[in-house]
Amino acid sequence: MPQILNRSGLPIKRDQIAPSRRVDVDEIEQTLATQQNQINQKANASTVGGLATAVNSKASQSSVDTLAGTIAGKADTTALASKANVSDLASKADVSALAAKANSSDVTNALATKADASALAAKASTSALNALAATVPVIADEIPQPETTGGQAGLEGMKVPGARHQHPRLTSTTGNPASHIIGATGLATVAFTQAFDAFPGTVFTEVPPPTGVMPAQPANFRVESWIRETMTPAPSGKYVGCVVRAWRGRNLPVISLLTGLLSLLGVNTIITALTGFDPFGAPATGTTFTCVAVKRSDVV
Rank of each mutant, 00 (worst) to 15 (best):
D106P: 09
P218M: 14
R222F: 13
F280K: 05
P283G: 04
T205Q: 11
K83N: 05
A100G: 04
S8P: 00
S57F: 11
A198P: 05
L67K: 07
H165K: 15
V292I: 13
A282C: 04
V300T: 15
A121H: 08
N176M: 02
S263R: 10
S96T: 13
L252D: 11
I12R: 08
N251L: 11
T230E: 08
Q36H: 07
D197I: 10
G9P: 02
T230R: 02
G175Y: 00
A43S: 03
P218C: 15
N44P: 02
R245P: 01
L80W: 06
V55S: 12
R21Q: 14
V299F: 04
A234I: 13
T34L: 10
S118A: 13
K13M: 07
I139M: 02
N130D: 11
N220F: 14
D15C: 09
D197W: 07
T70K: 12
A59M: 06
I182K: 02
D65A: 12
D76Y: 03
A99R: 05
T259K: 09
T77C: 14
Q152Y: 01
S297Y: 12
H165L: 14
T275W: 04
T232F: 13
E229I: 03
N103C: 15
V190S: 00
S96Y: 14
A284I: 00
N6R: 09
G237N: 05
R169N: 08
L80I: 10
G260S: 13
N103D: 09
V48K: 12
I255M: 02
T31Q: 09
N176H: 02
L170N: 04
